[in-house]
């Protein structure tokens, strides 16, 4: 009989960054059995800071963090595993590719020196899997947004992280490339079974990729309260989104429509909006 697998992620993190009037606090509770957890909400709600706190990249984080059953942070016990020993892959929004290295060397960057120089390092296979085989010798400066994102993803995956963090991975990609990259990302993650935390402000993206969603919102009730995760929408099954529209529903053509909610912009098939298009009260959208 096999033992039950520990949950991929259990975390309660509180952190304040900056000081004085620019101080900014985040308090988030996250949990994920397996798959992809989406942190979703408007910019400025603390999603990126939460990712960086998971990776161990911001000092002074209080709370606890357990990844795959292993404790990486327990501020009550004064335990904080440093970032370079967490084995958590981090893909920042601007990719942060190393400008002085070609694509293959960027991807191989985190591997031990001996492995890096070996033809059997697995970097070649990873490049092929990500559709970067032909670009192995290219410099980051010559790549498109989608290519850069795939290099950053490959670089994080090469070291076989126990958790993958992705900050707005589709922000610098055009609409056409986005759907393809979303499929690629989901396939790559599922193939490895690596749990992931993905940040996005786009509800459609959140629903397309997340097994579990945590919604962040900007809450300015008091200086120290700051943003925190508000609601959690469970599962990839039917989801209901409610909110007060802040403007009319805009038809986008091809059966899609856009509506602005308090803290999000929603782009969905037109028929999902139903008669909400004419309504003035809170909007209720059922997503299949």
């Amino acid at each position: 009989m096999s033992e039950p697998r520990p949950p991929a992620l259990e975390a309660r993190l509180a952190v304040t960054v900056g000081r004085g009037e620019r101080a900014f606090s985040v308090d988030a509770e996250l949990s994920l059995e397996a798959g992809v957890l989406v942190l979703f909400g408007p910019s400025g709600a603390g999603k990126t800071v939460t990712l960086q706190a998971l990776a161990g990249l911001v000092p002074g984080v209080r709370g606890h963090l357990r990844v795959g059953g292993e404790v990486l942070l327990d501020s009550a016990q004064r335990l904080a595993v440093p970032a370079h020993r967490r084995r958590i892959g981090y893909v920042p929004q601007q990719q942060a590719l190393f400008p002085f290295l070609d694509v293959a060397s960027n991807v191989a960057f985190g591997l031990p020196r001996a492995v890096r120089r070996s033809p059997r390092s697995g970097v070649g296979a990873l490049l092929d899997e990500l559709g970067l085989g032909a670009l192995a010798a290219a410099r980051p400066g010559s790549l498109s947004g989608g290519e850069r994102q795939r290099v950053a993803l490959g670089r994080a995956l090469a070291v076989e992280p126990r958790l993958l963090l992705l900050d707005e991975p589709f922000a610098s990609i055009d609409d056409e490339g986005r759907a393809a990259l979303q499929r690629l990302l989901r396939a790559v993650i599922d193939r490895r079974g690596v749990p992931a935390v993905l940040v996005t402000h786009d509800p459609a993206e959140a629903l397309a990729l997340g097994d579990r969603l945590v919604r962040f919102s900007r809450e300015k009730t008091s200086a120290s309260a700051g943003p925190r995760a508000l609601t959690e929408l469970a599962g990839r099954g039917p989801v209901t989104i409610t909110g007060l529209p802040r403007g009319p529903v805009v038809a986008l053509g091809q059966g899609r429509a856009r509506v602005h909610l308090e803290d999000a912009v929603l782009e969905v098939p037109e028929d999902l909006l139903g008669d909400a298009a004419g309504a003035t009260g809170p909007l209720r959208i059922e997503l299949p």
Binding site: G56, H84, G89, P92, Q94, G110, R155, V159
Partner: peptide
């Protein structure tokens, strides 16, 4: 960000 990524990839300071 470059240094942050380096740390997440396991590099010592």
């Amino acid at each position: 960000e470059l240094e942050a990524v380096g740390r997440s990839l396991g590099l010592t300071p």
